[in-house]
Computed example of a mutant assay.
Amino acid sequence: MICKELHFTRAAEKLGISQPTLSHQIKMLEQEVGYPLFNRVGKKIELTKVGEIVQQEALNIKGSLQSMSSQIEAFTKVEIGELKIAVLPGEITDLVSTLCIQFNQLYPNINVSILTTDQVEKAVLENRADFGISFQLNQCDRLQVTKLYDEEFYLISNQRNEEDRVSFSTVLELPLILFPNMHQCRKILDIASKEVGKQLHPIVETSSIQSILNLVRSGVGRSVVSRTLYEFYDTGDLFFQHIEKPVLTKEVYLVMKKNCFINYAARKYITLLVREIEKLHFPTEKDAITSIQSSLL
């Protein structure tokens, strides 16, 4: 207040204390610091260089105290605010979006923003997201990365097959309805096809999972989709086969900043996500899931 008013009497009035009391407190602070904080020129005062340092550190302390109070409040009971999630384009976006329906029913006062980006880690590091979910990872010492589950990709059709497995080379010979090549699932297929020396030639490309499922239902062709999409959409009338030689899988990771406070909304959403993964019996690493659950307590 003295730095703002540059006048002891006015500062004391604003603080609701006497001027001698305020002067005494400043004198004690100067004795502790070992240097004068103000130059007194008649009735006017100005900050010394040491005073400027003390002022800045005092502001930092004030900010830390405010942050501590807000974090404790968010940690214990706040059910309002915003949750920001960074996800890769594709099936993970569908997973996160579908869970938002359930999350909104439980926490209607929390707004959820989903950032679809190829740079999930960067979004988390720049605080544009509270956490991220990603396939691709670049090692970074500032990030805490935990494996959620293994994502498998299925061949789906409208007819039951005698064999529950099919080779990837056979898949490539079929009429396929696929996502466009910017989709993560399609990128995995493109890479796998190049590795076996072939190229994908889908008969239909669409970014709509509902369109893909409807086209498969009508017998136009077959498709390759992630287990996540197969489980989260109405696919009771469709049939799937595991793909092998090679097996098409991707590891799905939860990405957060190290030693960073996990706010109320993020903790509740991640808890919901882990519960859904376990309910669907996705392949998980028990230690990793236990680690996530412990960090949310």
Score class of each variant (00 low, 15 high):
residue 1 M to I: 06
residue 2 I to T: 05
residue 4 K to N: 02
residue 9 T to Q: 13
residue 15 L to A: 04
residue 19 Q to C: 03
residue 24 H to Q: 11
residue 27 K to L: 13
residue 30 E to T: 00
residue 30 E to A: 01
residue 40 R to I: 07
residue 43 K to I: 14
residue 45 I to N: 09
residue 51 G to K: 09
residue 58 A to T: 14
residue 75 F to P: 14
residue 76 T to I: 09
residue 81 G to R: 06
residue 82 E to G: 04
residue 84 K to C: 01
residue 84 K to P: 13
residue 86 A to H: 06
residue 91 E to W: 15
residue 92 I to R: 08
residue 96 V to A: 08
residue 104 N to C: 04
residue 111 N to L: 10
residue 111 N to T: 13
residue 112 V to K: 00
residue 119 Q to M: 01
residue 119 Q to K: 08
residue 128 R to A: 00
residue 135 F to Y: 12
residue 140 C to L: 09
residue 146 T to G: 15
residue 154 Y to M: 03
residue 156 I to L: 00
residue 163 E to K: 11
residue 173 E to A: 15
residue 178 L to V: 02
residue 180 P to D: 04
residue 180 P to S: 03
residue 181 N to L: 10
residue 190 D to V: 01
residue 198 K to P: 02
residue 200 L to E: 02
residue 201 H to F: 14
residue 207 S to G: 13
residue 209 I to T: 05
residue 210 Q to T: 06
residue 220 V to M: 05
residue 223 S to N: 05
residue 223 S to H: 07
residue 231 E to C: 10
residue 242 H to A: 14
residue 244 E to A: 09
residue 244 E to F: 03
residue 244 E to D: 10
residue 249 T to F: 12
residue 257 K to N: 08
residue 258 K to Q: 09
residue 258 K to H: 10
residue 268 K to W: 02
residue 272 L to R: 06
residue 274 V to R: 00
residue 276 E to K: 05
residue 277 I to H: 00
residue 278 E to L: 09
residue 278 E to D: 07
residue 282 F to V: 09
residue 286 K to Q: 14
residue 296 L to M: 03
